[in-house]
Structure formats: structure tokens, C-alpha cells
Design a protein around this nucleic acid. Structure first.
Lengths: 211, 211
DNA sequence: GACGGTTTTCGAATGCCGTTCGAAATCGGT
DNA sequence: ACCGATTTCGAACGGCATTCGAAAACCGTC
């Protein structure tokens, strides 16, 4: 009954994830190609997921979960290191943006899935439930709020959320608009080195949380 | 000879711009619809612009020029107000992000063209020349560098470019990921008021340029 | 005002696309 | 071995952007 625990449903997800990573443009992802790679037929996509869109959404959600797990693990590590004192601001920021940066630079990661997914959400009607469910899922970002509040107690939760959102915007700009970043910085920053990029990001984000 | 000074070419651009503003998803924009609105046929698009993609790119470029003109006019105003002293940092930042914010909140503006264009550039192969020409065109952003350097002379041009890029990322996040911004800020900021949003952005961007 | 080369418009045809649907096949419990 | 439920398949369908040859419109020149 349209289950996604099915074997071919799994193969479809794997094929979709793989194709999304290889393809440098969303238009290269077609139901027929996914089907071939999964040793199935295009109709299998409709049958198991309802539509190709929803298949991609399912794949993206899976990848998001991995990324968020890494983020939260780094956050926990940062908190534990200083407990019971507030964690180090730089370390918290690195936990927030680091995984995205590293994944986007790691050719073996599934980061392309995420950028393709968000652009797909914009191409199709964004308010569709299976999009909003993923896009509006900011619980893992909320996890950062209380710790940042301890670091900057003079900011209220709205201020913190706003700055968090800004930090994510910076992250997106760097991971998704690479050529613009290159040009604006005159090719003067090694954007292939995750540590350098993360340090640069901490450098601009940290002041938002200082007096 | 494939001119875009042609009358129907103009009508195609106007129709395309209008449809891009109305449509809330890129998939609503089809060659047939554009053609009908322009009292032409789909083949006219291929004839005059080569492809639907390039038509959209031409339209986006036109809109970009308007936005950039407004940005540079505000920058000039900020510079002139304080000359020969360095301009006010807050005013320069407002000149950088203000037009985008105001356009994105003005239902009569053509801002949707720009967000649809960037998502189209991601859907199709991004390195295509007619995309890079527009996306990598950061000359109007470069215009901000010397003035910011006067404000923060201890930063080199790479630092300035990096911070400029970060500011643009924040801008994109707010204008393009509205629902995320709403959720993260607990609906505590009136995102429909451009002045409030701009002030909030200045609040986080300005510290990047201070010691 | 008719001509001829150039530019523009048109409409049919092509090859993709995602999805639908009924029939075949497979599965699992009895 | 049977049968109902689940899954797979292949042939459609309609829609899409684009191509192409023919028709049409345009325009400077005779």
C-alpha cells in the first residue's frame, strides 16, 4: 500500500539521491533516469511516492536529518566542553554553520541534494505541504537559541532568532553563490578550505552577539 | 535579424515580466502563456531570444538594472550628505539592502522576477554564459567597497568584499526565505514594514564593519 | 506601383517530460 | 494450490520547449 519501506522504494530514493549529487542541474533529474538507475519504471515513482516531487522531498528530508544530527552533535560537544559555564560563542557558531560548509565542499557528500531541493521548492509552488514541512522545520535551529541566550543574555529571543536567521543567510550565500563570493572577495580567500571559510564566517557572525 | 529592439520582442519581454510577477511558481511560466499575452506564438520566443531561458534572462537583466540604479542613487546620496567626510555606515548599509527589501515588499514591483530568475539559474545549468553574465555582475556592489573602506580603513579590500557578500546573504535570506525568518523570530518582527526590517539588518551588519 | 531580398510570423511536427491506468505478475496467508 | 492484496509494468495522454519550412510582411529601389 504505497509504502516507502518497500525495497524498490528504497532503491528509488538511493537512485534519486545519487543522481541529484551527480547532476549539476535539476533538469538532469528525470523520472525515467531515476527509474533506470533503480532498475524500475517511472510509474514506480508515482506509485510509491505519489510524484517525483515528493520523492525528492523524501530524499531531501533524509539528508537533512543527517546534517542536523551532525549540527546538534557539535552543539552538544560545545556545550559539554564548558559546562556549567556558557559555551564558547565561536564554537557554537562553528557548530551552526560548519557542517553545511564542510558538506558543501566535500564532493562525496550529499549536499547537492539540499541545494537542489530548495531550488525545486521555489520552482514549484512553495506552499505545498510536503515542502513547508521540511523548509519550516527549524527545530534544530531553535536548539541553538537557549545556549546563545546564555552567551548574550541582553538579547531577547527574537533578537537571537533574527541573528540566527542572518547567520543562516550568510551560510547560504557562501555555499550556494560561490561564484559571487569569489568575485566579491577578488579570489583572495581559499573557499575550498572549510576551516578558513568557517573562521571567516565566525569573524562576521560573532560580533552580532557581542555588545 | 533576431533583434530585441523589435516590437513583438518588447511585447514578449513585457508579457514575461508581467507573468513572472503574477505567478507564484516558475512552472506557471510557459512559452505558450507568454506568447498569448504578447499576442504572438511560442516560436517568436525562440526566434527573438533563442530560448525561453534567455528571454527570462533578458527580462531579469532589465529589472536588475532598475534595482541597481536605485541602489547606486542611494549610495551617492549617502556619500554626498557627508562629503568630504566618510559617509554614515548605517546609511551605506541601508543603501545596499534597502532597495531589495522595499521592492520585495511592494506588490507592484517586479522583484519576483529576480527571485524567479535566480531559482531558474539553479534549475538549469548555472554556468551558461547568459546566466553568469548577470549573476557575476557585481560591479554595482563593488561601488560600495571604496566608501566602506573609508569607514573601516583597518579592513583590507578582501575583508570588505567578504562582509559585503555576507550582507547580501542576509538580505537574500530575509527577502527569499520569509517563512523561515518568520518562524525563527517567533513572528515577533513586522516583516511587512520595510523600515523595521532595514533597521534590523543594519543592526547586525554594522558591527561587521566596526572594531 | 511593382519588384526582390531581407526580416518576421506562423503552424505543424518532433522529442522530451511526468503522470495515469488497466492488465499482468508477484506475494503471503490459508 | 488457491485467492485477495500488493506491486510492477508498458502503453497510453496531455503538456512542454523547440525546430523548421513555408507563408507573410516589410522596405529600399527601380
Amino acid at each position: 500500500m504505497h509504502g516507502r519501506t518497500n525495497l524498490t522504494a528504497m532503491r528509488l530514493m538511493d537512485a534519486c539521491e545519487h543522481l541529484l549529487c551527480e547532476a549539476d542541474a535539476l533538469e538532469d533529474l528525470t523520472a525515467r533516469r531515476i527509474a533506470i538507475e533503480a532498475h524500475a519504471t517511472p510509474s514506480a515513482i508515482s506509485y510509491h511516492f505519489g510524484s517525483q516531487e515528493e520523492l525528492v522531498a523524501a530524499v531531501a528530508e533524509r539528508v537533512y536529518r543527517r546534517l542536523n544530527a551532525e549540527r546538534l552533535s557539535l552543539l552538544r560537544k560545545a556545550v559539554d566542553r564548558r559546562a556549567p559555564d556558557p559555551p564558547d560563542l565561536d564554537e557554537v557558531i562553528a557548530a551552526l554553520v560548519g557542517p553545511s560548509i564542510r558538506w558543501s565542499l566535500d564532493p562525496t557528500s550529499s549536499y547537492p541534494v539540499l541545494s537542489h531541493f530548495t531550488s525545486m521548492a521555489k520552482t514549484h509552488r512553495e506552499r505545498a505541504p510536503h515542502y513547508r514541512r521540511i523548509i519550516d522545520n527549524v527545530e534544530h535551529h531553535r536548539a541553538f537559541v537557549p545556549h546563545l541566550k546564555r552567551i548574550a543574555p541582553w538579547l531577547d529571543e527574537i533578537d537571537i532568532g533574527w541573528r540566527l536567521n542572518c547567520a543562516l543567510g550568510i551560510r547560504s550565500q557562501v555555499t550556494r553563490s560561490r561564484s559571487r563570493t569569489e568575485v566579491l572577495t577578488n579570489y583572495g580567500i581559499d573557499l575550498d578550505d572549510p576551516d578558513i571559510v568557517i573562521a571567516r564566517m565566525v569573524e562576521v557572525i560573532a560580533p552580532m552577539f557581542r555588545r
